[in-house]
């Protein structure tokens, strides 16, 4: 299955099948098309890639139930000194406030539940749409 990234001067868009095996390729496709100088290479290499992998993984696993017939949409705004990534699925959404703190001793050895925590530490701003099925990640040049 081939991913097709649509690129304009100030934006990119990518539809990703709900298949966890596509996450790595989707992340690489977006990361390698962020214009040089928008963010530091290190922030693209680590922060952007990790945060996007988290958001896509959550949308595919929880939002669209790993149903390959469904899609997750990635839309990227490219500003002069920021990149804002919107990841939207067609699921029912979730309440981000209901996620427990994964660093509490009782949660430390749990296999799941770190995704949002990691995202919040890697990007400058996180926002959710009202339904809870879309997340926006903003990374600014530093």
């Amino acid at each position: 299955m081939t991913l097709q990234l649509q690129v304009t001067r100030n934006a990119m868009q990518l539809d990703v099948p709900s298949d966890l095996g596509m996450v790595g390729d989707a992340v690489e496709l977006v990361a390698t098309h962020v214009p040089p100088g928008t963010l530091s290479p290190r922030r693209i290499s680590f922060n952007l890639r990790t945060a996007l992998a988290e958001a896509l993984g959550n949308a595919i696993r929880y939002g669209t139930g790993e149903d390959p017939a469904r899609r997750v949409t990635v839309r990227v705004e490219l500003g002069g000194d920021f990149v804002r990534i919107h990841v939207v699925d067609d699921g029912h959404g979730f309440d981000s406030r209901s996620v427990p703190d994964p660093t509490q001793p009782d949660n430390l050895e749990r296999e799941y539940g770190r995704g949002l925590f990691v995202i919040r530490h890697l990007v400058d701003d996180v926002a959710f749409n009202e339904k809870g099925n879309g997340i926006s990640l903003t990374l600014r040049a530093v």
Binding site: E54, R114, G115
Partner: peptide
């Protein structure tokens, strides 16, 4: 290059 939370989770497991 990078590890996401699922990667961390599998290490815990």
């Amino acid at each position: 290059g990078y590890i996401d939370s699922s990667g961390l989770g599998v290490l815990v497991s």
